[in-house]
């Protein structure tokens, strides 16, 4: 053996001896490699996921990598993550779409295939009309629709989309559910169509209206959550106006069922820290979502409650497949 080789052998031996000392705590410590976060949609969902992943990576000590797996109304990404090993290294940036994708028949399994980690954010849809139509509240709109000979044309994001579910619930509560014609627009074009006067109202997200409200071209009649939205502080909730509608779109994190509780806990704590970070708070303001952290247990209850709610709503709309 040449001296060089001897040294190398010694180093290797030392390394082997030292390995258990280093590796054992590392095994017990989650994570010891990057965590992959599957993102189901583009747009706001993707933007929030990018910021959240960066912040979570900082507190976990290993990067969290957002990987886009869009398509099928979330079906593609949910199916992918549900089939991965339940070790916490594959998590999904989920939303109410887990409930709607199941009930509309896009995926064969429901929310019980996942272990909830934490609820992170929520977004509240808003109902807008063109300024100058003399409609200042939901009651004004209701009165006008009741007198209308035809139907009210309402822009949504597509049949079975979250915006349509919200619209249906809201207009049913207002008692004008049968006088609505839904017009589907993808790609966030509904506010522009509203401006052009081709539709009478639109149910979309506050961020899409913000600029038009500032320039006085659109009026937001209602938001559908419990509380008002920071981005549109003037817009009243439906509840304030006497209509019992409380629907928000939540987003959160989930792992495949069977993920060890301590791993879920570690991820939950990282998510909580991320939501308290100033960078995340700034993103909430600019992207127009609310931070609504809930821990694993509370989040799990919320999803189960929502599942029953959407099953009923989709059944009512004739969109329920399973």
């Amino acid at each position: 053996m040449t001296p060089k080789r001897t040294i190398r052998a010694l180093v290797a031996a030392a390394g082997l001896l030292a390995t258990p000392l280093v590796a054992l705590p590392a095994l017990a410590q989650f994570p010891d490699k990057p965590v992959e976060m599957t993102v189901l949609f583009g747009g706001t969902a993707n933007s929030i996921a990018q910021v959240l992943a960066t912040e979570m990576g900082k507190s976990l000590g290993k990067p969290v990598v957002p990987v886009s797996r869009p398509g099928g109304g979330g079906a593609v990404g949910y199916s992918y993550v549900a089939d991965t090993r339940p070790d916490g290294y594959n998590i999904v940036w989920n939303s109410n779409s887990i409930n709607t994708a199941y009930h509309t028949g896009k995926i064969a399994f429901d929310y019980q295939k996942f272990a909830p980690i934490a609820m992170v954010s929520s977004e509240v849809p808003a109902l807008a009309v063109k300024a100058g139509r003399g409609w200042a509240s939901l009651d004004d709109l209701k009165a006008a629709v009741e007198k209308m000979p035809g139907k009210l044309k309402v822009g949504i994001s597509g049949k079975g989309s979250f915006t349509q579910l919200v619209s249906a619930a809201l207009f049913d509560a207002m008692g004008i559910g049968d006088k609505i014609a839904y017009i589907s627009y993808g790609d966030g074009k509904a506010p522009v169509e509203l401006m052009a006067g081709r539709i009478d109202a639109a149910v979309q997200w506050p961020g899409q209206y913000k600029s038009y409200v500032d320039s006085g071209q659109l009026d937001v009649l209602a938001v559908t959550g419990k509380k008002r939205v920071a981005l549109l502080p003037e817009a009243k909730t439906a509840i304030e106006q006497g209509y019992d509608v409380d629907i928000t779109m939540w987003r959160g994190l989930a792992a495949p069922k069977g993920t060890p509780p301590e791993v879920v806990k570690a991820l939950q704590e990282a998510a909580q820290k991320a939501t308290e970070d100033p960078a995340f708070e700034k993103a909430a303001k600019t992207l127009g979502f609310e931070i609504s952290y809930e821990d694993s247990a509370a989040f799990g209850k919320e999803i189960a409650k929502d599942d029953a709610f959407y099953a009923k709503l989709l059944g009512h709309l004739g969109l329920k497949q399973q």
Binding site: G42, T44, S47, G207, S211, Y212, D214, S215, A283, T286
Partner: peptide, 14 residues
């Protein structure tokens, strides 16, 4: 998305 995250909301008010 890049514009939005930097607080620039495109639209007539921009």
């Amino acid at each position: 998305a890049g514009l939005m995250i930097h607080g620039i909301t495109p639209g007539p008010a921009l």
